[in-house]
Design a protein around this nucleic acid. Sequence first.
DNA 1: GTCTATAGGAGGATAGAC
DNA 2: GTCTATCCTCCTATAGAC
Lengths: 192, 192
Amino acid sequence: MDARERLIESTRELLWERGYVGTSPKAIQARSGAGQGSMYHHFDGKPGLARAAIGRSAGEMRERADTAFAGPGPVSARVAAYLRRERDVLRGCPVGRLTQDPDVMADPELRAPVEETFAWLTGRLAALLEEGRAQGEFDAGLDAEATATALVAVLQGGYVLARAAGTAEPFGRAVDGALGLLSARTAAKESR
Amino acid sequence: MDARERLIESTRELLWERGYVGTSPKAIQARSGAGQGSMYHHFDGKPGLARAAIGRSAGEMRERADTAFAGPGPVSARVAAYLRRERDVLRGCPVGRLTQDPDVMADPELRAPVEETFAWLTGRLAALLEEGRAQGEFDAGLDAEATATALVAVLQGGYVLARAAGTAEPFGRAVDGALGLLSARTAAKESR
DNA sequence: GTCTATAGGAGGATAGAC
DNA sequence: GTCTATCCTCCTATAGAC
């Protein structure tokens, strides 16, 4: 792995763990093993490094969601698969985390990937739920858009509760609670 | 308002807006109008100031929840009242926010109020839902604990989505989605 | 490409005068 | 109680040598 690559990856990790304000060029250099000169040769500074790192995190988040959504089985199973996907819960969401960083949200270039990722995710999930509703998997009264937003929120909030508790447990319980509520909207299957 | 009070309140606001790492003693002094000497006379430094500020935010959060939960009407109405309570959505949750601050979570004294507040809130809401279930307001199969955790997560995640979008809208949609799902678990009322 | 030198400013706090 | 002076470290970056 070359220096440029190590710099991006180290920045990604530090942004994840400590946020933008909490991440210094010095720390990035230390973790990546790259020197001052190397860092400023490959990037124009902290914001540039952050752009590369955030873009990568956002891309990964989309890919993982896509994988779960495109899986086999009925919609409800794919939604459950996504919600229950293995996660490093206590680490939190690398993208959602940035939402709390005023310096990130103040910079349009840093903010855009965050905004787009959640818009895409919610929209994708809403389309999936709508598909399930159209096929009679869910009852006709289900509001796909609102439900999708609630499910994404459960995930993001689950991270918050888990970190507050110091255990991954609340995350799992939140997901269980959400799926429990959703399952009640599953249209009864006629057994004929 | 005396200097000590202004210092706490300013710290509270800054912690809310910028987090612990993003808040400097200098900024606290500037916002409070107190000088260096005044600040270090009343508090032993940044951690001490943060202790006072975080404790206050946590207390307020509990009080507000208590007010909604203790209101009149059936459980479902009190839960909805809490979820739909007026909020400064784009500002986020002053307590949940701290969850992303590694320096806060690393200090037991700063962390404790955060942990306790969410444990209390989830437990309180679970007890309320259980009460509703026992009284036949919800169907017997409702998992009060998991559902309560999901609802609190929807709130915390709603803040994240709202900040990502730059609008309060996703918060409202997430709450609508959650309440929509919950209403399907309301036991049908016999009209006799 | 990477290293070292250098630099102004901010962060976080102490000391002592008033 | 509050003010000013002072301190050392870290932050973020630039310059120029190798």
